[in-house]
Design a protein around this nucleic acid. Structure first.
Lengths: 321, 321
DNA sequence: CACGGCTCTCGACAAAAGTCAAATTAAGCT
DNA sequence: AGCTTAATTTGACTTTTGTCGAGAGCCGTG
């Protein structure tokens, strides 16, 4: 990909402005263009990730609650988004925080696994741009034709686009109608390769889904409300990368799971850094299940959820003693 | 280290402004302070590395010349600072570029070896602030009491301060008056430990010194101009971390070198990423020597020097064929 | 070759950010 | 306590930056 002269100019303007600290009019006279153009170039530079402005998320880990949670749940790191009267929309706050944390966790050369859902898409949406050409973003599960804009492949591609990274999509449906077909498809070289590549990821980004009629699995037609209720009564506690898990975070033995094309839980656990983000307070049980299953090393949640998790962990510890 | 309430405010202001994209007056009303205070907090946030603004140095590696040099000299990466009429001061430009490159190369948890000299100090001086608490900056060579502000320990400490990292100083003189004393001092546990810790570094930052009367070694009284001229006639080609090397980049066998307390060349070569920065065109031969000795994997130079290096490499290749 | 459609560029104005000295508060010291 | 000194905070002012519509250049097309 040859660099267009315009891109050269953007680079130069960004360099003079941000690295040298010149003012826009000084940059303009250096490059013999108008100051207005400089301002425009600088905006483009920010939008394309040529310049990177990042703020430390230290503040959110420094929370005492976050430290206590790290200990209680043996997680590597926890970030807690405040939820007070000043914050207009807690779920957006969580997404913005998660995007910052995610960018802080990404390193050069990383391979990143991304699942799908409203949360992941919201994170992608507020994520700032970066220039990480040697990064690869891979899709963790099959696709779901949906009336929503947050299809699995869109989550992956949007994040790849923001990072200026390579995006690897998964060309298979999430759920098939028979177990046989799913087995056959999983054996296809293309799919097999993609699935085995998951454990080579250095970083995963996902949320956990609830097992109820509001689930995307229901909304997208993969399961009927009745089936969902049935699974729930049989121990389903949450949804990870399109798969149903029980309260221990283990794959639930059910026809649905056998018809799904997605990364195995063991592959997910093989990823060193697993960033889980949960926005809704209602996802308490699903989150507990995911944590129990060791599907999460790094966690971003709201203050209320954090408190509930800590209370639960303490109650459990007391019961045990 | 408890976070003072003021620091909390700086964090919050930076978060709202840079991560959420609020305007200063909106931040001010959120935090119930005046907009002027917000502006001040934001400046502090930038100065302390709570927010990080970095510009890609892509532009300088994209240069065709840089690519050719990487091939010709088998270096991992080369950055070339332009030297045209618009650039007021090429050596500053090189330092600014080197500082950006350095920050791009630093990763979390790194141990960084830093040598000393005008170039290194200039880089430290223009380096922007960052918040890398788990990084350690170690001094690669002994100290030289000097009338200059760029003593070895100052280079190390200034860089550590800018990165908000731990600085590890070297409490020994660079040169001693007898070889015996130098040997004895090198055997001291404190010094021995420091020296052996050098090869555990992940990144090194240094320049190369010239073997002439203008050298710091002469200016600081470590060597007389006469001794320097003598060393030169005996094959001295450059100075690395206070030690004299020959044209092949090997340690020159001389009394001076035996009286020096500094990181061994083998230890330096054991560091995976060795960033060498050369500002002066006059340091052509010293740089050739350093490259010959494998003391450099990443290089930042000016356009003129880059051209000379390439011409030299090509002439050498032609001769060989 | 004239015509829209397109992108790029610029001047002028409005908005936002930076700065400074004065005022206020906090902190140290006798 | 009473004084001095240093550090914050602020309102008012200046400088810098963002934005928008107009105009200029460019290309493919009819």
């Amino acid at each position: 990909m040859a660099i267009r002269p315009a891109e050269q100019l953007i680079h130069k303007a960004a360099w003079l402005y941000y690295a040298h600290g010149l003012r826009q009019d000084q940059v303009a006279s250096q490059l013999n263009i108008s100051r207005a153009s400089v301002a425009m170039y600088l905006r483009k530079a920010r939008e394309t990730g040529i310049v990177n402005i990042s703020t430390s998320t230290q503040l959110f880990t420094d929370d005492v609650l976050a430290r206590k949670l790290e200990d209680a749940l043996s997680l590597d790191a926890v970030w807690i988004a405040p939820e007070n009267a000043h914050i207009a929309d807690p779920s957006t706050e969580i997404a913005v925080l998660a995007a910052s944390v995610f960018l802080e966790l990404v390193k050069k050369g990383d391979r990143i696994g991304v699942a799908w859902g409203r949360t992941v898409y919201m994170i992608a949406d507020v994520m700032s741009y970066a220039d990480l050409q040697d990064v690869t973003v891979v899709q963790l599960c099959g696709n779901l034709g949906a009336p929503y804009s947050y299809r699995p492949d869109q989550c992956t591609m949007e994040i790849a686009r923001r990072l200026n990274a390579k995006g690897l999509n998964f060309y298979a449906p999430l759920v098939l109608s028979t177990e046989e077909l799913a087995r056959a498809l999983r054996d296809e070289p293309v799919i097999r390769e993609q699935l085995s590549g998951v454990s080579e990821c250095d970083l995963a980004l996902y949320s956990v889904g609830a097992v109820d009629a509001d689930s995307h699995l229901v909304k997208c037609g993969a399961l009927t409300p009745g089936e969902m209720a049935d699974l729930r009564s049989r121990g389903a506690a949450g949804v990870i990368a399109g798969q149903i898990i029980d309260a221990d975070g283990k794959l639930l033995g059910c026809s649905y799971n056998r018809r799904v094309i997605s990364a195995e839980l063991a592959s997910l656990r093989a990823i060193a850094r697993r960033l889980m983000v949960v926005q809704e307070d209602s996802k308490f049980e699903p989150l507990l299940a995911a944590i129990a299953g060791g599907l999460c090393t790094h966690l971003v949640v709201g203050a209320h959820m954090a408190q509930r998790l800590l209370d639960h962990a303490r109650a459990a510890a007391e019961k045990a003693s």
